[in-house]
């Protein structure tokens, strides 16, 4: 269970560039929840992810996962609990290292890294099997440098890395936004099957309203650093894009401002 209590975050506080990114956020996710997050530009979607994973510290409030308070924990220590896939396919993998080396690093997330040399045959076989499931032909390229892979392949690999050591929570930050539509759909369905297979508590930021409605059991809409809508269960299943837009206008008193969200199918 993830609990965010009374969290606020302001960037460049006290300067002309002051930006209130999150104001008094309260959010509880239950085990197995798959929540999609939508909102306009600068709504605070990515900031929520970054305060959960510790990229940014919070100004006030607390964050805990399974009862463990992680508010003051540095990013690398929190990584034990969180699997992450980023918007930029370059971010999630080490380009100059081999596919198998990247996987071996991910396998050790949250564990002590020792002076044990190399990657065992057994481990290699395990990775080969997992890569085979991606159906991208990566199982025959274990020792290829990740830099040689396409964006979609890198995102699929990052997904695998994020779930290799089962996290308490998976965070997907617009992880298909930089991919072409066909690849994006493939990576998305792969994400969905990995989430279901492992019954992972998941938060997925997306700018695509269709995806936000189609995936997950819960939907959150953000605006100006606040959670303005939180829909789950039957209500979520019956949602349409039009209803979502209407609700947004109702709650925020303004029009939904994200061309990307409106234009994407």
């Amino acid at each position: 269970m993830l609990e965010i209590k009374n969290v606020s975050k302001t960037f460049n506080s006290g300067t002309v560039n002051e930006k209130k990114a999150l104001s008094d956020i309260n959010l509880t996710l239950n085990d197995g929840d798959f929540v999609t997050v939508i909102g306009g530009n600068g709504a605070g979607k990515s900031t929520v992810m970054n305060i959960i994973t510790g990229v940014y510290s919070v100004d006030c409030g607390s964050i805990s996962i399974d009862g463990i308070d992680v508010t003051a924990m540095p990013e690398y220590k929190r990584a034990k609990y969180f699997g992450r896939v980023f918007q930029d396919p370059m971010t999630g993998t080490a380009a100059t290292m081999e596919i198998v080396e990247n996987l071996a690093i991910a396998k050790k997330r949250g564990q002590r890294r020792t002076l044990k040399y190399g990657i065992s045959k057994k481990e290699r076989e395990e990775y080969r099997e997992l890569l085979k499931k991606l159906d991208l032909g990566l199982e025959d390229r274990l020792t290829s440098k990740v830099g040689l892979l396409s964006g979609g392949q890198r995102q699929a690999l990052t997904l695998l890395m994020a779930t290799l050591q089962k996290p308490k929570m998976l965070l997907l930050d617009e992880h298909t936004a930089a991919l072409d539509p066909k690849t994006a759909a493939k990576v998305l369905s792969l994400s969905d099957s990995l989430i279901k297979e492992n019954n992972l508590m998941t938060m997925m930021v997306t700018h695509n309203m269709h995806d936000a409605i189609a995936y997950g059991n819960r939907l959150i809409m953000m605006n100006e650093g606040r959670i303005i809508l939180d829909i789950s269960g039957e209500e979520k299943k019956n949602l349409t894009v039009e209803m979502l837009l209407h609700k947004f206008e109702e709650v925020s008193g303004s029009e939904f401002v994200s061309d990307r969200a409106l234009l994407s199918k």
């Binding site: 990013e75 690398y76 980023f86 290292m97 080396e101 050790k108 190399g118």
Partner: peptide
């Protein structure tokens, strides 16, 4: 080694290293 690989990852991609 595992430790040495982590150092290489640090030099290659810090965001990835910390996320892991």
């Amino acid at each position: 080694t595992q430790f040495g690989s982590a150092i290489r990852a640090t030099g290659c991609n810090e965001a990835m290293a910390r996320a892991n």
